[in-house]
Design a protein around this nucleic acid. Sequence first.
DNA 1: CTGTATCCCAATCGATACTG
DNA 2: CAGTATCGATTGGGATACAG
Lengths: 120, 120
Amino acid sequence: MNNSLTYEEFLKSLNSFKPTVNDCRISNSLVMLQGKWTNHVLFELCKQDSIRFGELKRALPEITNTMLTTTLRELESYDLVNRIQYNEIPPHVEYSLTEKGRDLIPIFYEIYKWTLKYGK
Amino acid sequence: MNNSLTYEEFLKSLNSFKPTVNDCRISNSLVMLQGKWTNHVLFELCKQDSIRFGELKRALPEITNTMLTTTLRELESYDLVNRIQYNEIPPHVEYSLTEKGRDLIPIFYEIYKWTLKYGK
DNA sequence: CTGTATCCCAATCGATACTG
DNA sequence: CAGTATCGATTGGGATACAG
């Protein structure tokens, strides 16, 4: 059932993918990456096993508290990111990629290669 | 210069990628796919060598004229799509992927595999 | 057939101030 | 430390009508 096509098979069967929007699960996946900050945050999370809210904020100096929180909550809702809260003094929170999130890395790798070829 | 890293090398060097937004060329690439209709249109264009405006419209019944035009113009501006106009009676226009656009297909393939594993 | 022009609405983004 | 609340600004998307 879950046998994936090889790249060659994928190319040949492209036109058998349903054209209508609702049936296009591939495009639906991209919706998860559509937020302005989504991929920046995901990419930071790729870099280390876990990272704190404040570290993320320093890594992305242009993001606001509101947007960082909103983005992280969205990624949690997609089950791409884990949030672990430590109720110590001072309290802190660690964010990390789930397995589902880490499995996005091969996509980033293809984007990396494309960018190397065409990026400005 | 343009030697790309292997996937293993890519993984190891992830944390050497610059964290700041402006330096993150990978994330900049994703901006091109951020429009609500962008990836749907690109995906339709992957399926055949060239396609007419009206065919695209029928393939994506929920898109409006305005958004289809806007999206195509945006893709043209990124040099992902060619537009060829035939001044016959009746006039028609053919859209096709550029080489740069076709080189996005490996990215779609990775998204396809990810979707197969995790898509709802 | 392949678009534009116009107008409106909704969602997103951001700045600032404040809190458990 | 890691957020939330509020409000205003900006952007993007959509409906409709019309044009080359």
